[in-house]
Design a protein around this nucleic acid. Structure first.
Lengths: 179, 179
DNA sequence: GAGCTATAGTTGAGTCTGCAAGCAAACTTA
DNA sequence: TAAGTTTGCTTGCAGACTCAACTATAGCTC
């Protein structure tokens, strides 16, 4: 051995190792994909994620607070993010009929289009990135493990069905809330 | 099902799922641990990582560029980071005897002490965080998988033994460069 | 229904980090 | 040894987020 410890992980336990690798993997992959996405479609990773999250939401809209949770951002982070997306016309504000405090972020047609345009290349890059380093089964395994960490499991149960229904009625009642 | 898709991951493949979970897990855990570390010891996560990396390096010093790789930062990020750490007296600059362009970052006694003070609590929090969500074997598995992603594998082979040796001679020749 | 407390979101100020450009030292090549 | 190139680091500027403080609305309790 030339160095006392070859990596930053040295004698620390598996949790420390997982932690530092999580930080670095996130930083490195983010930088790589961000450059590509910005270059090709002029949006940041977070913006893409936001568009994607909205596109999968009922009526393509979400309370700002819920969006914050879904993206693991703080409320103020969402305000700033949407500020940009609204200015770009990709997202629009919508009021809530039952609670004047809440405001929804709704995907516009332009936003939907931009997402569609970006999604193919971006998801391809993501897949390529992961599959370059991991076997398919391992990718799933990784997803499963990461899914149990904080930040990733805030899913379902946040939709405020009652209020959402009312707003939906105002805006566009064509959704398929199947029962 | 009430919503069309309960999470941002919807119909996308495992790679997309892994990716978005990676982003969120990193964001969420980082925020949590950063607050704690800042509160308790007045340093950021990156600063802690830097101190830790340096502490495991030969002679507790590293070329700034190498430090950048190890932390998955850009060179400019390292310059700014060290700016702060140097001002705080936790790290000091050291010149390289053989190449005037390079400058080393070296842990000071104060830095070593600060790291020591912070490390117990911080590593404990990390372990707690991971073990709260994953079984011990899963933590190792996660570490292994993350270790194969970009950013995490830049280890060993960067030490520039020749130059390091010369600087070491100037500063402190007590290292165990065995063979 | 007047006050309390809780919740949703925004805003000001600051931190961290990156990119692009710049500078200086080292290396290459003729 | 004088270009020309590459490498290591720093700097100016900008973007993305956060925290803390604030506003406005809701909901509760008496």
């Amino acid at each position: 051995m030339i160095t006392q410890a070859s990596s930053a992980e040295s004698e620390s336990g598996p949790a420390q190792q997982a932690w530092s690798r999580l930080l670095r993997a996130a930083a490195a992959t983010k930088r790589e994909l961000a450059a590509e996405l910005q270059e090709a479609h002029g949006i940041s990773i977070t913006a893409y994620e936001a568009l994607h999250v909205l596109s999968t939401a009922e009526d393509q809209q979400l309370k700002r607070g819920v969006l914050a949770e879904r993206l693991a951002l703080t409320p103020s982070g969402v305000t700033r993010l949407l500020e940009g997306l609204e200015q770009a016309g990709l997202v629009e504000k919508a009021a809530c009929a039952t609670d004047l405090r809440v405001s929804y972020a709704r995907l516009t047609d332009a936003g939907r289009e931009r997402l569609r345009a970006a999604s193919c290349g971006h998801t391809g890059s993501i897949r390529a990135l992961f599959e370059r380093h991991l076997a398919p089964g391992e990718v799933e395994q990784l997803a499963e493990l990461l899914g149990r960490l904080p930040g990733a499991q805030e899913e379902e149960g946040d939709v405020c069905p009652a209020a959402a229904a009312e707003v939906a009625a105002v805006a566009d009642a064509s959704s398929e809330r199947t029962p």
